[in-house]
């Protein structure tokens, strides 16, 4: 028997069960945050390596939550390196005018669907990531709170504002789109 075969066959087995099934979730989050295929792949690969090294600290439970928290950290440190000059403003601190709360629903327009990715692009990272976690990955508030390491109340208000902000951006794009069409 190959001497090294046994331990590496035993240890990664649990790692594989707990984390490898969440590759798509990891890549999806990274892709939305990095907005670039190869950057996203690099981040996921690094996240898996970090997760593997830190796996003895994994206390069981939800592997997806644990992995996504790592993916997010890797993505943000890459983004910080890229944007040395512009430190991101926390989305929670941005003031929103009350008129945003009464934004008209854009979904009646057929173009809304096509413009959605562009509208997502215009959002701050914190707004985009919470929409990805909740609307695409279907994470509950509690899971998002664990991934972002913030209280549930923050998840609730950040998600609400992210949705309104997205609707607002979508409206602006629609208006431009319609005026171009004339």
């Amino acid at each position: 028997m190959d001497e090294s075969a046994f331990p590496s066959a035993v240890a990664p087995a649990t790692f594989e069960q707990a984390l490898l099934p969440h590759q798509d979730a990891a890549y999806n989050l990274a892709r939305w945050l990095m907005r670039h295929d190869h950057d996203a792949e690099d981040c996921v690969q690094e996240a898996f390596l970090r997760a593997y090294r830190a796996f003895d600290r994994f206390r069981g439970g939800d592997g997806r939550t644990w992995l996504l928290a790592i993916v997010r950290n890797v993505c943000y440190s890459r983004l910080r390196q890229k944007r040395l000059v512009e430190p991101p403003i926390s989305f929670d601190e941005i003031e929103h005018s009350s008129s945003v709360a009464t934004v008209e629903s854009p979904w009646a327009h057929a173009a809304a669907r096509e413009l959605l990715p562009q509208a997502m692009d215009k959002l701050p990272d914190e707004a985009r990531e919470i929409l990805v976690l909740h609307e695409i990955e279907g994470c509950a508030y509690k899971e998002i709170a664990a991934i972002l390491e913030v209280p549930i109340g923050t998840v609730m208000s950040r998600l609400a504002r992210a949705r309104l902000k997205l609707l607002g951006e979508l409206q602006l794009l629609l208006r431009k789109d319609l005026s171009h069409g004339l």
Partner: peptide, 25 residues
Amino acid sequence: RAALRASLPRYAAPARLTEKIRAAL
């Protein structure tokens, strides 16, 4: 919310990424 969920794409991990992860571990 339903419109959003129906329209937002979920990016799937490319096959080469899976291979890279398995090879790296």
